[in-house]
Each structure stands twice: as structure tokens, then as C-alpha cells.
């Protein structure tokens, strides 16, 4: 097989893996949008915050150490212990649930009935708040996240493809793990929303708020629930991204890319988020590989957005979105 084609195949595979990570972030958006009609811009920052919290707990960092030191002139930084990964993950998930509860009680409660765009801007404010809060709580230096996920090139794939094509594909183990985790997560979410009582309530709310209220479903509980789930999804996404490229501010910018993913897939569809993520992941890698060198490279910065923009002009509701019906 020609070298170029093999290259393209490898790029495509890597793009698919990157797409899984986009899809993970996009998943959190879809969950919240379906249940509450809120376009949660803060999802990316939630992933960053969750990852920061995880690393902080794991390494036994003192929360707000920077602030305490500045105010009292002390020199605290770490507790003398380290927390095992699994417990740290559970604790971080607990923090995200607490966060969901606080957001519901102090922000969303007061914004019920406001236009969508106001809610959207409120989540932008929330994102800024969390960004500052996370940095104050855990410090803004780049942190290394290690929860024992395998990393580095997958030797088996390299060997097998070498035997087949005479050229070994480079696939990161971490990406494979991410793909598996993402599919497990989607499966779990599907089972949860199809078969559990809360899951059914969730779908009822997504379908029609007032009708759900009238049959006795507590909107407040559902919102806390869905923000908690989104927080958990953010934690998973944060772990994956953090293990890949370190826990740092740019994490929340990468998460911005989940937006075109959503637009492509449709705001209300979980399969849409996955397919959209894969399309964007593969698309931007292939575009960079084929056209990129001709026009100066670094096209990943904008390709996703422009693709989504062009796509939307022809199909405003996205691939799997519900048809938009407008009435006066």
C-alpha cells in the first residue's frame, strides 16, 4: 500500500481517538441541555475544575494554600499524606455533586423562566467564576495527573499493523482506554435513562417541563441530578484530557471545541454528540494532514468551527437534532 495512504489511515485513527475525547465533553453538554434547556458553557471549565480537584486531593494539597499563605504569611502547601487514586476519584465526584447542588440552589433556581440566552450567559459567568475559584483553591501551575492509566504507544497495534502493511501505526494506549471508557459511559447512561426510575423522570423532564411537573416529578431534584451526572462526565473527561496533556488552563479551551461537536451532532442527541465528536476529530486531523501544509498549518484552531458553521447553514438542527419548529 502507498505510504501516503497508510499515513492517512493512521491520522484517521488518531483523529477518531481525539474525537472520543471531544465527544466526552460534548456528552455533558447534551445531558444538561436535554434536561433543562440550558446550554452549559461551563462544561469545559467543570472538566478542568474536576481534574484540578482530583489532582489536589490525590496529592494531599491544602486547598486555598496560596490564599492562606498570602493572608497569614504562613508556608502551608501539602498535607503529609497521599490519597489513593480510587478514593480521590470518589471524593472528586463528591465535590462535583456538591457543586451541582450549589449551582442549582443559588443560580438556576433564580433564573427559571428567563430566556435561554440569559441562561447561556449566566453559565459563561459561572465558567469564569469556577476558573478563578479553581485556581485559588488549587493553584494555577500545570499539574501532572496520574491515576494509573496506561500511556505510550500500543506495542500490539504497532506490531500487528507492521506485519500487515509493513508500517506500524502509532496509537496511544491512553486513547484506547479513553475510547473504552467513553463507550462504557454512554452504555451506562443509556441503561440508566431507559430503565431506572430517575432516568425515566429525566426523560420526562426533557420532553416537557410542565407535563413532568404535573405528574409529580420534582424539577429541582432532576436538575441537581443531571448537573451531578454532567459533573461526573466532566470528571471523566478531565481525567482523560489531564492524563493526556496535563491539567492546565488550556483544558477549558479544548473543551470549547465541544461546541462545534454539538452543533454538528445536534444539541439533544447523545449519539449525535458521539458521532459529531468523531467527525470533528477525524475531520480536523485529515484536513491538517492534507490541506494544512499548503496554507500554513495549525488549522485545528478553527477547522471544527468553520465545518460546523458551513454544516449548520444547510441543516440548522444538526445531524440528529429534532426539527426546529417556530411559531409566532
Amino acid at each position: 500500500m502507498p505510504e501516503q495512504l497508510l499515513f492517512a489511515m493512521e491520522v484517521t485513527l488518531n483523529g477518531l481517538m481525539a474525537g472520543v475525547l471531544y465527544a466526552l465533553v460534548a456528552l455533558g453538554f447534551v445531558l444538561i441541555f436535554k434536561a433543562s434547556g440550558i446550554f452549559n458553557y461551563a462544561q469545559g471549565v467543570m472538566a478542568l475544575f474536576a481534574a484540578l480537584t482530583l489532582v489536589g486531593i490525590q496529592q494531599g494539597q491544602v486547598p486555598f494554600a496560596h490564599l492562606i499563605n498570602a493572608v497569614f504569611g504562613t508556608e502551608v502547601h501539602h498535607f503529609p499524606w497521599q490519597v489513593p487514586s480510587l478514593i480521590a476519584i470518589v471524593l472528586a465526584a463528591g465535590v462535583m455533586i456538591l457543586f451541582a447542588w450549589i449551582v442549582e440552589k443559588y443560580v438556576l433556581q433564580h433564573l427559571i423562566g428567563q430566556p435561554d440566552i440569559i441562561l447561556f450567559m449566566a453559565t459563561i459567568g459561572l465558567a469564569y467564576f469556577m476558573e478563578g475559584f479553581g485556581d485559588i483553591m488549587w493553584g494555577s501551575d500545570i499539574k501532572k495527573l496520574d491515576v494509573g492509566l496506561p500511556q505510550g504507544m500500543n506495542a500490539t497495534i504497532d506490531q500487528v499493523t507492521f506485519d500487515w502493511f509493513g508500517y506500524g501505526f502509532f496509537i496511544d494506549n491512553l486513547d484506547i482506554v479513553a475510547a473504552i471508557v467513553a463507550s462504557l459511559l454512554v452504555a451506562a447512561l443509556t441503561i440508566f435513562s431507559q430503565y431506572s426510575k430517575q432516568g425515566r423522570a429525566l426523560r420526562a423532564v426533557a420532553d416537557d417541563h410542565s407535563a413532568a411537573l404535573s405528574v409529580g416529578i420534582s424539577l429541582r431534584f432532576i436538575w441537581v441530578l443531571v448537573w451531578s451526572i454532567a459533573g461526573f462526565v466532566a470528571l471523566v473527561a478531565g481525567i482523560m484530557w489531564g492524563a493526556k496533556s496535563g491539567v492546565q488552563f488550556s483544558l477549558s479551551l479544548i473543551a470549547l471545541k465541544a461546541l462545534p461537536v454539538l452543533m454538528l451532532g445536534g444539541f439533544t442527541s447523545i449519539p449525535g454528540a458521539i458521532v459529531g465528536g468523531l467527525i470533528i476529530g477525524v475531520g480536523e486531523q485529515l484536513f491538517e494532514f492534507t490541506i494544512g501544509p499548503m496554507i500554513g498549518g495549525a488549522t485545528q484552531n478553527w477547522f471544527a468551527y468553520v465545518l460546523a458553521l458551513i454544516f449548520l447553514i444547510f441543516r440548522p438542527q444538526g445531524l440528529f437534532g429534532e426539527k426546529i419548529i417556530e411559531r409566532v
Partner: peptide, 14 residues
Amino acid sequence: EFMIVGGLIVVFLI
């Protein structure tokens, strides 16, 4: 500053 700006946005919108 980030925290205050973000918080203010939310407070103002509410």
C-alpha cells in the same frame, strides 16, 4: 478578578 467578574455576571443576570 476572574471570580469576581464571573460572580458579578451571575448576580447581575439574576
